[in-house]
Computed example of a mutant assay.
Amino acid sequence: MVDLMGEAAGAPPAIVLVEPQLGENIGTAARAMANFGVTDLRLVTPRDGWPNEKAVYASAGAVHVIENARVFDTLDAAIADLSFVIATTRRPRHMTKRVEGPAEGLAELTAVARAGHGTGILFGRERWGLENDEIARANIIVSFPVDPTFASLNIAQSVLLMAYEWRRIAAAAPTLPEPKNPPATREEVTGLWEHFKRVLTPTGYFRPPDMAEKMERNLLLLLSDANWDRQQVRTLRGVLGHIEKPRGEGDDGEG
């Protein structure tokens, strides 16, 4: 293969497999990653544990991807250091989150990577994919333009399509200027969401009780979709922290 990549392309995205069930599927996904120079594999609670010999065998030589794979107990931990995350899904979710095709979504991801920030792509379980709460943590959804009469893709196929599209776009995309402030990481955005929940819950905002979980997720969707930079997140958390203070605390005595 002729290598068209260089440092200007930015780091490849992390591939995050959420609760993968079979070692063979992890191995074939690793093989697909290696085909296009993507090597950061992150596993969230693989069902059959890790390491997994079946994954090694199925990787067909992509042992470097398997050996460097990292395992996380939660999705939040797996994406904490990433500033731009794509969630892949083939099912309509009826969520207030932007949906793009692979080319458009990976063009955005590549722009963030070229600026030196971490990126990732989420893939769900073999049987039912990603759950809505997991998708809510991503910046955008990417959906494949498959034939609706036979829309099923396995994990390796999905990883292959995204890795190929990333490499194609990263090799051709122009270098963009560095943003004034670095983008917020997913950990920082999740922290902002948790802070909002902590401030709003005592006010009775999340009601009625049977709708509270959905309302919390909708708030996360709103926050995770915005292209926050780190300074904006710090400013908002400062505002929330001020609201949390007991009345009069920090008062200069005037009023």
Rank of each mutant, 00 (worst) to 15 (best):
M1F: 14
M1G: 15
D3H: 15
L4P: 00
G6D: 15
G6M: 09
A9H: 11
A11F: 05
A14C: 10
I15G: 12
V18R: 01
P20C: 06
P20G: 06
Q21Y: 13
A30Y: 02
A30C: 04
R31L: 01
A32D: 08
A34V: 05
N35H: 04
V38I: 13
L41W: 09
L41E: 13
L41H: 08
R42E: 10
T45F: 05
T45S: 14
P46T: 13
N52A: 11
E53Y: 06
E53H: 09
K54D: 15
A55L: 01
A55F: 01
V56T: 13
V56I: 09
Y57T: 14
S59E: 01
S59Y: 09
A60V: 03
A60Y: 01
G61I: 03
A62G: 03
F72V: 11
D73F: 00
L75C: 06
L75K: 04
D76Y: 07
A77P: 00
A77I: 00
A78W: 00
A80F: 08
L82Y: 05
S83Y: 07
S83F: 02
I86T: 03
T88K: 05
M95T: 14
M95V: 13
M95Y: 08
T96K: 00
V99C: 12
A103P: 00
E104M: 12
G105T: 08
L106S: 02
A107F: 01
A111C: 04
V112N: 03
V112P: 02
G116T: 07
H117A: 01
G118V: 09
T119Q: 10
L122N: 03
R125Y: 03
W128P: 00
G129E: 02
G129M: 03
E131Q: 13
N132K: 09
E134L: 05
E134Y: 00
A136G: 12
A138D: 04
I140R: 02
I141H: 04
P145G: 15
V146E: 09
D147Y: 10
T149W: 14
T149M: 11
F150Q: 07
L153R: 10
S158T: 08
L160R: 07
L161E: 03
Y164M: 11
E165M: 08
W166S: 07
I169Q: 05
A171G: 14
A173Q: 05
T175Y: 04
T175M: 08
L176N: 06
P177R: 02
P179D: 00
N181M: 15
A184L: 05
A184W: 04
E187F: 11
E187D: 14
E187C: 06
E187L: 09
E188D: 12
T190E: 14
W193C: 10
K197A: 10
R198Y: 09
V199R: 07
P208T: 11
P209D: 15
D210E: 13
D210P: 03
D210Q: 14
M211D: 10
M215S: 08
E216L: 13
L219Y: 02
L220N: 04
L221F: 08
L222A: 11
S224N: 14
S224P: 08
A226M: 12
D229C: 11
R230K: 14
R230C: 07
Q231H: 11
Q231F: 06
Q232Y: 08
Q232E: 15
T235S: 08
G238S: 12
L240H: 15
E244Q: 15
K245S: 13
P246T: 08
R247P: 00
R247S: 13
E249T: 13
E249M: 12
G250C: 06
G250A: 03
D251E: 06
G253T: 00
G253C: 04
E254T: 10
G255P: 03
